[in-house]
Design a protein around this nucleic acid. Structure first.
Lengths: 254, 254
DNA sequence: CCAAAAGTGTTCTGAGTACACCCATGG
DNA sequence: CCATGGGTGTACTCAGAACACTTTTGG
């Protein structure tokens, strides 16, 4: 079978889907858009779209991200830049029946973004919003609010979202990725609240402070202080050059 | 743009490429096949092939693996079974120019296999062999043998192989995946030599023994002993049910 | 007897945990 | 003055690192 023969291989549609995570009001939230057409019309879905014929996968993900949120993300090789979003490839989903219309292989990407004012519904998306992942996936932990159980996400997007959340949860253990959820300058307490929101646990503020300030290259002082969280003024930091956290931040047992 | 309109999205070819790793003669080795046709004719490449129209990605990877090696791997969800191979999705490579003939998106998979007699060249592959990853990627460590620098792998396969090796190296830290490199029954020393080959370091045999036998569910005694490594008879073990290793095995600093 | 690998015991030390305590601000 | 969060000091504990030592085979 010659590779030049188009009948030797079936044609696929290739898309990118985005798991865009942020921390809002002490909860881990994901960006979802409402579908304006069948299938799954009216249901929430992850943002995404077709990869163009001459476009790299990461470029397609960055383009879709910009179209849907105005965020400017960057190459997977170099993490956080621009207005701070981190983008990396997550996994690829290619079940033959995942889209009832045709054979679609979707390369999911994970984006970690600082808290943004409000998603702007742009392009082909009817409307967009931030939703707590706990609501989107069903209450994994016991302490979720009861009652409002929204319709499940379209396609296999609940699975993709769950994989993205799991990736984010494990990756902040051994990397400085949690800073991607923070504004350019942040306090140790704000960074701690990111960990607490993503992991759904409480951390000891004193030991956390020692751990992150004692790891060389993790945080660099930005010079100023802030009282935006109340209490005693806190030093402001920027993310340092170190991307790997060794020894890792230990996630308390559940 | 309606998704039903075939002109709305460009058609892609979708393939799976396999990073098949094993440990032979105290070295980490990868399975490579010689290309019988252009482009890159005569060069070594990773095994792989087109995904069929009604086939899941993992199924395509398992099929290609069986065609090339006779190995029987299994679903990514459940790790090692059959004759012991572990298969998981690695990453997806979709640079528009990665294949000069056409637009190909390749979903790479990682396979960890115990030492096999010899690869059987099957199907569309001219010939196949195990090659030390150190030779295929250029000597990362100083202690590689000099001189014989083979031609680089075809396409972007060196990058894919490097990503697969890196995944394997990091994943055996915190999982029981290293047992996938071992036969069904193995000794603690054999398992230690797997770690040493994959990481390229020397580990303290005494502390390693305590660590793996002291982690509940990691190893279960198989009952017998063997002297196939010489010296005092060693207990035989099987891989236990535990898949996560906590606390992780610590990789010594380079 | 000796080499080689398996396995056990013991000491030292680095890092996480828990928690008492002080600091600096806003209201 | 006091509530709130920021930050430091310290004792306890656990697990990895290093290494002396014993065990059991093959040659």
């Amino acid at each position: 079978m010659s590779p030049y023969d188009p009948s030797a291989f079936p044609p696929f549609a290739v898309t990118v889907d985005l798991v865009v995570l942020t921390v809002r009001r002490h909860a881990l939230c994901a960006l979802v858009v409402r579908r304006g057409e069948p299938p799954f019309q009216g249901r929430w879905a992850l943002p995404g779209g077709f990869v163009r014929g001459d476009e790299d996968l990461a470029a397609a993900a960055a383009r879709e991200l910009a179209e849907e949120t105005g965020l400017c993300a960057h190459d997977p090789a170099s993490p956080a830049l621009g207005n701070g979003a981190h983008l990396e490839q997550l996994a690829t989903y290619g079940d033959p029946k995942r889209d009832p219309r045709m054979r679609v292989v979707s390369v999911a990407h994970l984006v970690l973004a600082p808290d943004l004012p409000a998603p702007r519904a742009g392009g082909d998306a009817n409307s967009a919003r931030w939703a707590p992942v706990e609501d989107l996936l069903g209450q994994e932990n016991g302490f979720g609010r009861e009652g409002e159980q929204p319709a499940p996400l379209a396609f296999d997007h609940a699975r993709i979202l769950a994989d993205g959340v799991e990736r984010a949860r494990s990756k902040i253990e051994y990397s400085s990725l949690a800073t991607a959820f923070c504004p350019p300058e942040f306090t140790v307490g704000e960074l701690r609240r990111v960990y607490e929101a993503v992991w759904g646990v409480a951390l000891d503020p004193r030991n956390f402070h020692r751990k992150v300030t004692g790891t060389p290259g993790f945080l660099v002082p930005a010079g100023g202080t802030t009282t935006r969280q109340g209490g005693r003024p806190a030093q402001l930091f920027r993310a340092g050059g170190a991307t790997l956290l060794n020894p890792p931040m230990l996630r308390p047992e559940v």
